[in-house]
Design a binder for these strands. Structure first.
Length: 564
DNA sequence: GCCGTTTTCGGCCCGACTGTTTTCAGTCG
């Protein structure tokens, strides 16, 4: 039972209770718990089996702790099973229809007694919905359209997929009439690995004009709403964009509010309440006096805090650290001096080692590692590869190619290449390319054995996840982190936009163990060398500083794996 | 249902927009 599965159970429980009409604060409590569980670095199942006190976790009280134990021990939650018998599963699907919430669904179900999508579609066609109290032709139409789209809901965009649209919108809006300041906010600004929609905040002297201009963006496929200060559109690629325009004196508080995360903003709001203050998108108020609203930094200053970078705003301790003025100074793209995981055309890559080296120097790198994938039968190829790197290195003065290799970790934890071959490389990456479904204890033991191999330098994309497609392998991270630390081994943050592995939450956790990182592109082409910015994003979200990342070092000679 | 060095009871974010109304409930972020 994974944390995701447990979180899903509480989410469904909350949704069904909401439809049932249960106390909304209770519903919110379940949703808070669900969100908390999703963000936990460690498996709840293990915590239950180790007899840990779950009520120590925020948003988990006695009742929910008991329910978690029930889920872990029996695989299900009786309370949810009962509710599911009371309401057909289609009701949960209806919640995903834009503009349709629990109250309407309750009314629909109580009056029309449908149990499938098809039945509800039929009722819409017969215009039975518009006659209900609180419904009308427009809502009926919305439901009919929403039912058709049900199946394709729930997809978030990879950050890198949303990025070109964000850039294009930014460029377009920059020249909107009367616009003063402009910023992409939301999860995009927080550099989250996926974004559900784009949130954009602007200030202008005449907001209505900006809104009107916004809705005329050429790639709009649907205008959901367009008021005096706010508008929502959907783009051709079905990416939703929420836009908010305020007066310039409110820009800071609006930007803060719409950057989120929700958890961060709510926590600040609670802090304001404790100080008898009120915070909203227009400012921080003491009675009617606005204490801070022009710039984001003003708001944090008003609380006596350091400025908090958007990447940290997830309510994972950043507010407390800001108060104590001990926030990390986050790593920046410019701190990266080398890319240590690149494929040439000796294996998966498109380019020759020389082409890569030339391009890397143009990017300003001081050294790189070429790390092609070799198997045990590639002996001749390996000799040729090593010779090629030596030959190129003899021509450089202020640049160095480090000899790397990517190597399979076999099921028993040994490496595919023998020690004699491995000893010819400066840096050896282990990857798991088979037996993904081993049980957690065996998978962890396999990786730990590889970590103990003196020839292995680090594990590449440790969880093997593919974002939104594959959860990856199951590991006991406490054991893994201890093994990495004990054996002086490192963690990679792989920058491929659909990997970003190890992720932010685990990176933050690993840092507590004193583990160092490498941020690598694992590029297969020259273009992909620029993916490294996504890895840096993830590192920033994981609270990493320059000093935590080995390829921020100016000199390759002081890298721990360089022997000579 | 969770939370709390002012609380173990009484709070729990709040403003904009839409579509239904005839002054406001529901939904969303």
């Amino acid at each position: 039972m994974t944390n995701k599965e447990i979180a899903k159970i509480f989410e469904e429980l909350a949704q069904l209770l909401e439809i049932k009409g249960e106390n909304s604060f209770k519903v919110r409590a379940y949703l808070n718990a669900s969100r908390e569980i999703n963000a936990l670095p460690y498996s709840l199942e293990s915590m239950v089996k180790d007899g840990k006190d779950l009520t120590k976790l925020p948003n988990i009280g006695e009742q929910i702790a008991k329910k978690i134990e029930e889920i872990v021990n029996s695989g299900k939650l009786e309370k949810l099973e009962k509710l599911k018998k009371e309401f057909p599963p289609v009701l949960l699907d209806l919640l995903s229809i834009e503009g349709l919430g629990a109250k309407h669904i309750k009314t629909l179900y109580e009056n029309l007694h449908f149990s499938t999508v098809e039945e509800l579609q039929e009722l819409a066609k017969e215009h039975k919905i518009r006659t209900l109290k609180g419904f009308g032709p427009k809502l009926e139409d919305k439901i009919a359209k929403g039912l058709k789209l049900l199946k394709q809901e729930g997809i978030r965009f990879l950050y890198a997929q949303a990025e070109p649209y964000a850039n294009e919108l930014y460029k377009y809006l920059q020249i909107a009439p009367t616009i003063i300041r402009l910023e992409i906010a939301g999860s995009f600004r927080r550099k989250k690995e996926t974004v559900g929609d784009l949130d954009i905040v602007a200030s202008a002297s005449e907001p209505q004009k900006v809104i009107e201009y916004f809705t005329k963006f050429p790639k709009v496929s649907q205008i959901i709403s367009a008021g005096d200060t706010r508008s929502t559109i959907v783009l051709e690629n079905s990416l939703q964009v929420d836009f908010r325009v305020v007066k310039d004196e409110h820009f800071g508080s609006a930007l803060h509010y719409f950057t989120g995360s929700k958890a961060h903003v709510l926590e600040i709001r609670r802090m304001a309440q404790d100080l008898n203050l009120k915070i909203n998108e227009y400012g921080l108020f003491s009675n009617d006096k606005n204490l801070a609203s022009k710039d984001e930094a003003d708001i944090y200053r008003a609380f006596g805090m350091e400025y908090i970078e958007p990447e940290l705003r997830e309510n994972r301790g950043e507010l407390k650290s800001a108060k104590n003025k001990i926030l990390p100074k986050l790593i920046e793209l410019g701190d990266i001096k080398a890319d240590m995981h690149i494929y040439s055309n000796f294996s998966y890559g498109e380019n020759s080692i020389e082409e890569i080296a030339n391009y890397a120097q143009e990017m300003g790198y001081k050294y790189i590692a070429i790390t092609d994938h070799f198997g045990s039968i590639d002996t001749n190829k390996i000799e040729q590869y090593l010779k090629e790197i030596d030959k190129l290195n003899s021509t450089y003065k202020d640049f160095k190619i480090i000899k790397g290799v990517e190597n399979d970790i076999l099921e028993d934890g040994s490496l595919a290449l023998n020690n004699n071959t491995l000893s010819k490389f400066d840096i050896v990456y282990g990857v798991i390319n088979s037996n993904f479904k081993l049980p957690k204890n065996l998978q962890s033991a396999r990786l730990i054995k590889a970590i103990q191999n003196p020839y292995l330098s680090l594990i590449s994309h440790i969880s093997n996840r593919v974002i939104q497609q594959d959860e990856g392998i199951e590991l006991n991270y406490k054991e893994i982190f201890n093994a990495l630390k004990a054996n002086n081994k490192y963690l990679e943050i792989n920058s491929q936009p659909n990997r970003l592995d190890i992720n932010d939450i685990l990176a933050k956790e690993a840092k507590k163990y004193g583990i160092k990182f490498l941020i690598n592109s694992s590029a297969k082409s020259l273009e992909e060398l620029h993916y490294i910015k996504y890895g840096v994003n993830q590192a920033r979200r994981g609270w990493l500083e320059k000093g935590d990342v080995l390829n921020c070092l100016m000199e390759f000679k002081i890298l721990p794996f360089i022997s000579s």
